[in-house]
Design a protein around this nucleic acid. Structure first.
Lengths: 358, 358
DNA sequence: CAGAAGAGTGACAACGTTGTCTAGGGTTGT
DNA sequence: ACAACCCTAGACAACGTTGTCACTCTTCTG
């Protein structure tokens, strides 16, 4: 009475193949065969094993399986922030691809922090992912050398790896997109166009600044540093920058914003600065945003659209090609951007003396 | 010459602790101690081992570690869709909590498909996650019994588990929120209020419908099925439903929309139906949306705000309490919602004869 | 009818790590 | 000088699975 009432049931924790084997009266290996749908098991035996599996609630231990087999059928995705719409679209595309190939997906955010990027990547490597898709935050990827050496396939997305790291890369045409957006404003008569972008140490922000400058140069317009404000999309900073721009002696008549968050915060700042209900036309400024965003259509904001889902899909396709044995030299793909006119970018320059801000 | 030029370097694949031990001239176990920062290793020995680790690019194999130790220090999160803003905020909160506790996070989307939810959950269990946070798509969670039995901690978020599954649950006050939003419209003079929601087989949609009906009843207003349209947030369907509502003999003067996507698609449909640039006031309808969304402030849309980040944080806190040994009876937490007036919900009813839609 | 072929099953080692136990050698206390 | 101790280090088994090989029956072939 004081003893185990039933030894078999008292076993704590998860049942193993051994337990199933004992319950079904077969050998361990036979259970393994059933679990993995391997051929060479009598139908009657198989169903007896199956019954034992269901009765005990057995689930295969993938850690043991991975340890034994070497391949994990999982990939890792490192992005900047899951909560950002751009990256969550990208995530979803990668998740779809992983599911389609029967892979499990780890996702982690770097929060634009190189050390954290490294930690997340190495944690995934410790879990022995077969491949990685990385949106790099840092610019030194030397830490990847042993991983690449060990055969882990890596694809960089949205931004290239740091110098000295050779790997497939999928980017948007940042320079071309920014050039196109700027040229669009120039074509509508603007001569003083401000550029509001993310911190210039971020690859995409620097590239877009480059495109902006190219467009100015192509049109024979001067590059004025006073019209450029770059930094993280912090509402307070952006308000201050916009106030400075708009109260300058020669304020811009148009804005090019460097990414989705910047565009949105610019719209907010403009709305709060001008008390205009219709933010799209606030202050009479023309506006082109780099990167499309939800509701840009309703707000009438002209954008240079990237396609984050396509970016993710392309990176995943590339990764799975590598995983299935493709040994071609590494490649660098640049996806085209698309200008979507919605009104805000087609406004002509307004005489600026009429209004004051602040 | 034809042979291995250097046996040690030729070894394919990843170095193991054994390799490191050999390279450093110590025993396997000593390497293990160094890797895990266990005490009892001479500083000189430790640095020799460390050097070998770096030279070989050794990374611990977590599968083996997990197999040996039993605990995985990882949790799984199953949501409906990473690309949805509500769930991506929730994800981010969970990710933060996981990071803070030193746990790794698996994320998977169910796409509102019960079978897929089950597959994802079981895949995570096969990887031996210690805990799970689930936004359930299905209503039968019998498949979780063996997992719970095996000690996996489960917290349900946003929606409760199906009958017969006992587990901690964190919800929003859907009924109260919808009641509040509806009462707000009633307080502004509306008598015919339409409800546009997600498919009624989704828990939150059904609850919100319930809140809507309660508010009507409390105000002595009749419940008119003709004012209710529920289904997935498909643009075409929503346009058709709105057209039907607005061209009815007694059209509504206000709308309550049942979630973020529905609100956004409603705004789009209204804009396209009325050609109004200012979608917020399109058709003169008052509008309250359940669930806040990016740019609702600029569009002037009154919402009943949930806090997805708080939802995720609460669920994660609960899970980590369970993981650290908390054995209290399961609980069900309901988070309050908050009404955020921004204009669209404060418009008075308009005489409806003036306009025609379609 | 003997021998070969094949289907079904099981024994066993190995994957890379960690927990337990043991051994060597130096220091301390009496 | 001897025992008792601590510090360091290694030997070994075990975690749960899968790949390899070997064994036992049938059944088929010559």
């Amino acid at each position: 009475m004081g003893d185990d009432p039933c030894v078999e049931e008292t076993r704590r924790g998860r049942p193993t193949m051994n337990d199933v084997a004992a319950a079904a009266g077969v050998a361990l290996k036979t259970v393994s065969r059933v679990v993995n749908s391997e051929p060479g098991v009598n139908a009657a035996t198989a169903s007896r094993v199956q019954a034992a599996i269901e009765r005990l609630g057995y689930r295969r231990n993938d850690s043991a399986r991975i340890l034994r087999r070497g391949r994990t059928a999982s990939i890792g995705l490192v992005i900047e922030d899951v909560a950002d719409a751009f990256y969550s679209s990208l995530s979803r595309a990668v998740e779809d691809a992983a599911l389609h190939h029967g892979y499990l997906l780890f996702t982690g955010s770097s929060r634009e922090d190189a050390a954290r990027e490294r930690d997340v990547v190495l944690a995934f490597c410790a879990r022995r992912v077969d491949g990685l898709i990385i949106v790099p935050a840092g610019s030194d990827h030397g830490y990847l050398a042993p991983e690449l050496e060990a055969g882990i396939k890596v694809v960089f997305a949205d931004r290239p790896p740091g110098a000295g790291c050779e790997a497939d890369t999928v980017l948007c045409d940042n320079v071309g997109g920014a050039r196109m957006g700027t040229a669009h404003l120039i074509a509508h008569g603007h001569r003083r166009i401000a550029f509001l972008g993310d911190s210039p140490r971020i690859f995409t922000a620097a590239e877009r600044l480059r495109g902006y400058r190219q467009a100015l140069a192509a049109a024979g317009l001067p590059y004025d540093e006073g019209l450029v404000a770059m930094g993280p999309a912090d509402p307070a900073r952006m308000r201050a920058d916009l106030t400075r721009l708009l109260t300058a002696s020669e304020p811009p008549t148009a804005l090019l914003t460097g990414n989705g968050r910047t565009t949105v915060e610019t719209l907010r700042a403009l709305a709060s600065l001008t008390d205009a209900a219709d933010a799209g036309s606030a202050a009479g400024l023309a506006l082109v945003g780099f990167d499309d965003f939800e509701l840009a259509d309703l707000l009438g904001v002209t954008v240079v659209a990237q396609d984050p889902a396509r970016l993710g899909r392309t990176a995943a396709d590339l990764l799975f090609m590598r995983l299935s044995g493709d040994e071609e030299p590494t490649c660098r793909i640049e996806l085209a951007t698309r200008l979507v006119p919605r009104g805000s970018g087609e406004r002509p320059p307004l005489p600026l003396r009429d209004r004051t801000a602040g």
